[in-house]
Simulated assay, not measured.
Amino acid sequence: MVLVPKEPVSIQPVGVVVSDFKKVSRTYDYHRESVIYMREDLTDALIGIEYFSHIHVIYHQHRRQDWLELVEWKKEQPPITLPVAGEPVCRGVYSTRSPSRPSAMGSCVVELIKCEENRLYVRGLDALDGTPVLDIKIYIPHYDAFPLAETPLNCCMRNELSATSRRLHWDTINVGLALGLRTGARALQALGISRGEAARAEVSGGHFFAQGIEGATGCSVLRGNMIFEELNTSPGQWKLKLAGKDSEAEIWLNDHIYSGASEVLEAGEKILFAAVNKN
């Protein structure tokens, strides 16, 4: 067994970020410019860096606690799993770009606009004003860029058919799709009708959830018989109202996080649905 060192590592910052990005936010404008003020004793270490268009910036997330308060994290320890926006599933922090790193260390590849003495003018640095910079490193495309690297559907879209199975990620990403299929099928059952016989659907939830309902019921925004309200929330606020000729079925989901689509497909109705009503 390999023992992971538990002793803290002390690192002296090499610089500090000066930016108008002063308030913690869930999003960031990567077109924004900022300045890295390097320690004056390291000015000569920057000789030649102006010949590179991009650099890696390693920094300390000194205001990580502010971000935890922004996302209303109540527990003492920072989260190591995070919900996927619009999906009732979690991902580990190391499979996200969340600022909740266990080491409180952030990194970013930025465009180097210019270098003046000990000042690096950069674009695209997602670090707050006053962030301690721990290291910088030149970016070399031959070593650092991987054009064929794969990413999940929620991070980046690819169009090649050969990548379709890798994009789908049925067991992880499309929990919402499986929930939509189960919810749509249950609503059809409650109304005693088949796919294509529903007059109208009103859906509140994530995009994949709506897509699953479309697949089950045949209702679609494109056909004009589905009203969709996007909710990037937990499933406790997701619902479907499906109208037949003479009656309506309304289904509310339970607030539950699933390990994968297979769990949704195998779960009983008491786990899936908070309420199934027919009017």
Rank of each mutant, 00 (worst) to 15 (best):
G268V: 02
Q65R: 14
C155I: 15
H54C: 08
I55L: 12
Y143E: 13
N159H: 13
N254L: 01
E33V: 14
V57M: 00
V71M: 13
E160P: 01
V17Y: 02
E117F: 04
M157A: 12
V122R: 04
C115A: 15
A187V: 03
L125W: 03
V16R: 07
I213F: 00
T131V: 06
R39W: 00
L120A: 02
H60V: 00
R39P: 00
S107W: 01
P79T: 09
H142M: 11
C155R: 15
R166N: 10
L42H: 11
I173E: 10
I136G: 00
L177E: 10
W170P: 08
A45N: 14
T96D: 02
P88M: 09
T43F: 01
M226Q: 13
H207D: 12
C156D: 14
Y59G: 03
M105R: 14
L46F: 02
F146T: 06
A267D: 15
A178N: 10
S25P: 02
S95W: 00
L181W: 07
E250I: 13
K245S: 12
T217D: 06
D144K: 11
I173Y: 12
K75P: 00
V9I: 15
S53H: 15
N232A: 14
D126T: 07
F228A: 03
G15Q: 04
H54M: 08
G176K: 05
H62N: 12
L153V: 07
I213V: 15
L181Y: 05
K137P: 12
C219N: 07
E116S: 09
L42N: 11
